[in-house]
């Protein structure tokens, strides 16, 4: 057993595992490759090698900063594994004036993640995009309302890099946003049903947002915001609220089978199963929802490792260099 442990602790193996890990990282970079899969083997080997070295190599016990640095590396390795097992990442889209109801467009998570995202509730109160005088990057301010743990209503502005932290989840606005026309469907029996269709992101007005949609009577329709020049952009610094929706009358193109209709707010369309009324144009905001419960532990392990590294090398860096004679 000792022989195996000593063999595993070999510094030669450490050097080999460094190279394998670098190769794994480069492999992980290629599209379609799983970083977790790529790093699993080299990471595990390096961790075992590190553990065996700490146990068997007397130098670690004789040098406190060296020991602390390698223990911190070990803690970091363990925490990174736990992080991969417990992380969460999801995408959602919420129309202005409505609340997130737990439905996600896409999500991925570690197998040990305790999924509580469906319990999150927040309301999108509208957003503003500030375009500076120069440059192509706009800043997003999205007003959000939610109820805190004590039942009080809270509001805050979140953005692309300013999250709302709710029950351990960090909620950011994503770069995806679009129009969301509101309709009323009056069935033949006289019952009213309200709903909205989230049109696809228009890439900041580069093209008109559109989407397919199944009407309440089961037929498929295609919907697009009718703008004369979708690429027209305002020059200079300006603020755009809710993509400009709700301001002036905005027409929609609605295509059902071969029939094409142009609707303005308030227009009604008589269909076989009922009457469709285009009420108004709203907008939706995309959100990124992420969680990483290991964050404080990761930071702690890294801080400890960095302190130990500085401690270890400070003694070497500031030690006088012994002068050696020139080779000739």
């Amino acid at each position: 057993m000792d022989r195996w442990l000593l063999a595993l602790a070999s510094p030669k193996l450490s050097a080999v595992f460094f190279v394998i890990m670098a190769a794994g990282a480069l492999w992980a970079k290629a599209p379609g490759h799983s970083a977790t899969l790529a790093m699993l083997v080299p990471f595990s080997l390096l961790t075992l090698n590190l553990l065996a070295a700490i146990v068997t190599n007397r130098r670690f016990r004789a040098d406190l900063p060296l020991l602390v640095f390698h223990l911190a590396l070990l803690a970091l390795a363990v925490t990174l594994v736990v992080a991969r097992l417990t992380y969460f990442e999801g995408q959602a889209a919420v129309t202005v004036g409505t609340s997130f109801d737990g439905n996600l467009i896409a999500e991925e998570s570690g197998p040990l993640h305790t999924r509580r995202v469906a319990e999150l509730r927040f309301t999108n109160l509208g957003f503003a995009e500030h375009q500076p005088d120069r440059g192509r990057y706009r800043t997003t301010y999205n007003r959000i309302r939610w109820q805190s743990g004590d039942g009080r209503t809270q509001t805050a502005d979140i953005g692309d890099d300013v999250p709302l932290v709710l029950a351990g989840y960090r909620i950011y606005t994503s770069r995806y946003r679009g129009f969301s026309p509101v309709f009323r469907w009056t069935a033949a029996a006289g019952t009213d049903e309200w709903g909205t269709v989230q049109l696809r992101d228009s890439n900041n007005g580069a093209f008109a947002g559109a989407n397919d949609w199944t009407l309440p009577d089961g037929r498929t329709a295609w919907l697009m915001v009718d703008t004369d020049d979708p690429a027209a952009a305002r020059e200079g610094a300006h603020v755009r609220t809710n993509l400009g929706a709700g301001g002036e009358a905005q027409r929609l193109i609605l295509r059902i089978d071969d029939a094409r209709h142009t609707l303005s707010p308030g227009d009604q369309l008589e269909l076989a199963g009922g009457t469709l009324t285009y009420v108004r144009l709203d907008s939706w905001m995309g959100y990124r929802i992420v969680a990483d419960p290991t964050r404080p532990w990761l930071l702690g392990a890294v801080a400890l490792g960095v302190i130990a590294l500085v401690w270890f090398y400070a003694r070497i860096v500031f030690r006088p260099i012994p002068s050696a004679p020139s080779p000739t």
Binding site: A22, L26, K29, E89, D161, Y172, R288, D292, R295, L298
Partner: peptide, 18 residues
């Protein structure tokens, strides 16, 4: 802080690890 994930495996991050 800014994007919700400390590591994205983008080319620059991978090469900085290497």
């Amino acid at each position: 802080d800014a994007w919700g994930r400390y590591w994205s495996w983008d080319p620059l991050e991978v090469w900085s690890l290497v």
